[in-house]
Design a protein around this nucleic acid. Sequence first.
DNA 1: CGCAGCGCCTGAAGGC
DNA 2: TGCCTTCAGGCGCTGC
Length: 266
Amino acid sequence: MPELTEVETIRRQIAPALAGRRIVDAWHAPNPKFVAARQVVGRTVQSVGRRGKYLVIGLDQERELIVHLGMTGVVRLRTGATIDPYVRASWTFDDDTILELRDIRQFGRVASVASGDYRTLPTLHALGPDPFDPALTSRDFYRALRKSTQRVKTQLLSQRPIAGVGNIYADEALWRARVHPASRRVSQPRAHELLGALRTVLAQGIDNGGTTLRDYRTFTGETGSNQHALDCYGRHGQPCGRCGTTLVRKVYDGRGTTFCPVCQRV
DNA sequence: CGCAGCGCCTGAAGGC
DNA sequence: TGCCTTCAGGCGCTGC
């Protein structure tokens, strides 16, 4: 389940290989989510960026190729033919390397847009600031959270107050900041703690090359190692590392959520 | 306009 | 052993 950390890991790895390359051919699976792959044939890669969980590949003539990895998406480079049935889109470059999107469950998506025009991608269009944006203050974050009375975890997953947080890092950051995932109102001091916790767990995730629970692999096919550093996500039934209370798992707004019922307060 | 509810997908895991 | 059901969950879309 690629979140910001996994997408950033992949971005850093593919950027040097793609910069300046021209796309000479493309292929896509029949699923309409991937048909935009062919629309960028003939363009040259100028930049490889990221907005939240979206890979944003800058092309010439003010175009962008957007790739979202969904739940099971992986991006990798190869040369020669493949027989992998889970490859949903691929782009051939002028040096005969092939970038491919492998996505077992097809929750991913490809789009070709005019630079910065994300109207066809509502979540990207309304995306909050990057957690590592130095201009983002905890006061900004607090105000963003105050715009809704949805549960704080649901807000994080909406990508609106802040970009790139998924289920794993939401649980981790809420645990670290001692904020209850079902809180509908977060005070300014606690918003400050939560932003700091998000930055900490996300930076650690990037340092560890991402979290591999099942499908996620880095661009070079390696697993990440952050799954060994998790304090909360997936640890229900085990003791809280702070107070020893058994971590519990509940479903909030349809999302499995692990938290400490004692340390994390509403 | 915000948001709840649903559908998309497939492999793994659990039940019988 | 093998079939069936349930679950995982990000995000786009629909309709209230």
